[in-house]
Simulated assay, not measured.
Amino acid sequence: MKNLRKIILNFAFILLTINGLYAQNSTSKFKIIAFYTAKNDQAHISFVHEANRWFPEMARKYHFSYDSTNNWENLNAEFLSKYQIVLFLDTRPEEPSQREAFQQYMDKGGAWIGFHFAAFALNNSKFNQDWDWYHNQFLGSGQYKSNTWRPTSAILRVENRTHPATKKLPETFTSSPNEWYRWENDLRKNNNIKILLSIDSTSFPLGTGPKVHEIWHSGYYPVVWTNKNYRMLYLNMGHNDIDYEHRTNKELSFQFANETQNKLIINSLLWLGKGKK
């Protein structure tokens, strides 16, 4: 009798769990799918794991649905049709069919947010610039040119204070430690690009080296922008600080430990989740 009662209680618990999950999905404002690789750099791997902990928490708080996958074969029209927002957490698709499916998804009004290494391209590397639509038209940035090192915080300036992604952000704020990228193309000269955040001049010198060129002393560096022809946002953030020197690979910083930076991301999700171009 006790065993029967235990079975009944367990079955009831399972039903309640299923109903709870169904209710959560049925009331979700929008659905997000995040693609990742998590193989190329310990700092990027750290960020992916952190993101896959943080986004589900935000999904419960803001009533959206979050899924993630490292299977890039899912980047096809049928699979993408289930989701309102696509995230690239650390890389880009490499197969022609996957790239075509993503471009069609965006051309038809889909939404996207890319982080840090998702925009990386450099000829004569494992990530050649062999996707002109993505790097030159969609992102507008072209190839990677250089970076700061070590990962350090920067003072970021909000360039566009009327965009939904920057709603109620302060004029400047301190970012989480990050490796910052410089790009081949000057985004200020691209009429389709709206720069939302850039590195403020008070950040300089930015980086600690040890190589001289890894420390920036001047210049203009956009770090968050959107393309007015697409529902998209790129953020240069996405590289945690790691203890490489002592070979411990200990995580020394986290991207989502920054409330203001988190507000930027939540604003962006809620803006793109509305489904309006």
Rank of each mutant, 00 (worst) to 15 (best):
D132L: 09
F30R: 05
N128L: 02
R92V: 01
S141R: 07
R182H: 10
E259A: 13
E171S: 14
G142R: 05
I33D: 03
I18C: 12
K263R: 15
Y234F: 15
A118C: 12
W133Q: 03
E57N: 12
L75N: 03
I215Y: 07
K126N: 14
E251V: 15
T91H: 00
N74A: 02
Q129S: 12
M106T: 03
K167M: 10
T172P: 07
G114Q: 07
H246W: 06
Y83E: 08
T174I: 13
I266R: 01
H44I: 11
F30L: 09
N25Q: 15
H116Y: 08
K211F: 13
H135E: 11
R92N: 06
K39Y: 11
F117A: 02
W183R: 03
R60S: 13
Q84H: 11
A77I: 09
S253K: 12
M237V: 15
S218G: 05
W112G: 00
S141A: 14
W131N: 04
F115S: 01
S68C: 09
Y230P: 00
N262K: 13
S65R: 10
S218V: 08
D200H: 15
W131A: 02
Q143H: 02
L122K: 13
I7C: 02
S65D: 10
E179P: 00
D107R: 14
T91G: 00
Y244G: 01
K194I: 12
N249A: 09
T174P: 06
I113R: 04
N178S: 08
H163V: 02
K6M: 13
T17Y: 14
E95L: 15
W216Y: 05
N40M: 04
N249S: 13
L9Q: 12
H135C: 06
Q129L: 14
L264N: 03
N71D: 15
K228W: 04
P170D: 14
L80G: 07
V224R: 09
